[in-house]
Design a protein around this nucleic acid. Structure first.
Lengths: 199, 199, 199, 199
DNA sequence: TATGAATGAGTATTCATTCAT
DNA sequence: TATGAATGAATACTCATTCAT
């Protein structure tokens, strides 16, 4: 049942508790020191309990980033869905992204740390191993915007990479200090994204 | 001899060979798998030979990033020094940065991987542990440009962070594929930096 | 569990088994060759099992000497406590010491070997790093005896050092041969201590 | 020529220099940290120079203790030789021993540290591996004294061991502090030896 | 005579994983 | 459901020794 979806209440609770512990552990001691033993200690359970619920340390970490980025994805989709104009959609996307980061600091910061530091079986970090799907929404907005002349016409992948680079600036600040003041950064990012892309 | 500057021919050669091996190892198997044993294997020497020349794995990695970023720094300073106008200086800076990345792909990619993945004794990654000095040149250009009205007036740290985020976009592409075609990206970065900052 | 006191039956048993193995290993191959690997081999467990129960090789050795010298201390205190006359107390102390050494040959010999050979973080052997507390009981007896005129009045530290030197003579014999015949030595030590100190 | 006796001036000087370095290294950092590298560093020569002159680290250490204890032996023989009465001879022996320790603090302390810590091929410390010869002089004095009724008749080995134990008390003080004040200890040792043995 | 270069065997320690209960 | 027990493979590092020059 470690692989199947959680069913009982206890199981759901335990998994949440362990996930939470994994996030705070990664944030507080950093990815390399976030050993199973350390996570277990902070969760108040035995190492083997983690393995029992998540089968593997890797699996636990994957659940963390799934947890983090699925929530982020939902927020982005929800923000963009009602809109049709590419400029409005992009603005909604960027703002939703930044607000989600701002509003889920611990989870997002841990997620990013994992995605940057964790390696798959081939030694490739997860953020490089990702598929096109991961940025499909943003890519779609930019493509449409370029087609409609709302944005400058530039190589799509370049545009996507650059918007994402700008969007991740606040995350670096949070890595330094989870309580960092982002009020000056966030509006600037919106501005820069639009200045960079406007036709 | 591990701490002093290299003197004999053999020493210089061996150190270069090991440095080279460290760079290619980090690039090919990733930081976490770049163990002393693996680096030694690829260098064709014994593990203890690395320790003989660099005293410590940490020291070896520090030499790598020193090697990489001092060369980068020299390129940046050389490019910017002859100029006085902030806009010209920024353009020179950005182009020199990108050309250096483009021209020293293996070294820069490994250096960045190390700077992102390696942790100091407190568990803090090097790129977070860095001082203001590391971006002093860029910060100076931006500050002066803002004072003279050449650039929009925005919080200096925000400007620095965002320019650096854009400058590092090609590095991510190289991490995926050291032979990536950057020809479309580089000019766009120059454009975006200036669009983002122009007054 | 490596730091807390043993609780379960298995834990107590394993710790005793490993402690026992550490003692016999030190006695049979000597301190410098008593590596974790060798102790584990003789205990019939994996190296990591030792670490599991004692966290550290140092900690294991500290447990050995604690085990040895606390038992010795208890024997000394028990022997001396009921008596008040300094001469009787000293006689009881010396005899209890020698009988304890005689009766716990392996443990005491290993304990002494560790205390003599093991170095703390500063490179100082434990028997030099010890505090005054370690010989407080003997020192108290001698001080009182001198005050009451039962013993010659000589510098207290000198008296303590010399009594301890005499008391450790049989231990040296045991280091050579754990089955050594001490019957001739023990009574002589009592005699010499009293001849040395009598008023 | 590393095994043969020193011949040239240079060789004698180099060997003395290295021997001296070995002694001070052992005293300053302790036996376990007195690596060839450290001794070489302090001697201002290359590691391989030590091996060149002494063939082996073990051999170097043996030379140190030979150097130390042969000098001690000569002092003892010289002191005792002119005398015939066992009591006078013992007194001369004890005083010469203590004065030699006092007068050659560094060498003796290092010698004792080596003799206690270094192990031969079987893992046995040198002070246990020694032959009867090492205490032949003292044993002879005591035997004769007992035969003549000058000393109590007790097992010879016991008497030897105890006198040696008392004689080594000041060395322990020196291990703690090479500049220790021994003025109170030395006369007491003479007294105790004679009290212990007088008929 | 003296050295720098290089090594291999050995050290303690870390850690995710397995498994019987 | 949950755990304690135990492990094996990996890690960085130490050091006396070898050897060509």
């Amino acid at each position: 049942m470690s692989t199947a979806a959680p069913v009982t209440f206890t199981e759901r609770a335990r998994r949440a508790q362990i996930l939470e512990a994994a996030i705070s552990t990664v944030n507080e001691v950093g990815y390399p020191r976030a050993s199973l033993a350390e996570i277990a200690r902070r969760a108040g359970v035995a190492k083997s309990a983690i393995v029992y619920y998540f089968a593997t340390k890797d699996a636990l970490l994957m659940h963390v980033i799934e947890h983090v980025f699925e929530a982020m994805d939902r927020a982005l989709v929800d923000a963009v869905a009602p809109l049709t104009d590419p400029q409005e959609r992009l603005r909604a996307y960027v703002i939703a992204y930044l607000e989600h980061v701002d509003g889920h600091r611990a989870a997002v910061t841990a997620g990013i740390e994992i995605v940057v530091s964790h390696r798959n079986a081939d030694g490739v970090p997860l953020y490089l191993a990702g598929t096109e799907d991961d940025s499909a929404l943003l890519r779609g907005i930019l493509r449409e915007g370029m087609e409609q002349g709302a944005f400058r016409s530039i190589p799509l992948e370049v545009a996507v990479a650059m918007v994402e680079a700008l969007l991740d600036v606040p995350s670096t600040a949070l890595q330094r200090d989870l309580d960092a003041d982002l009020s000056h950064v966030l509006p600037e990012i919106v501005t820069m994204v639009f200045r960079s892309l406007s036709g």
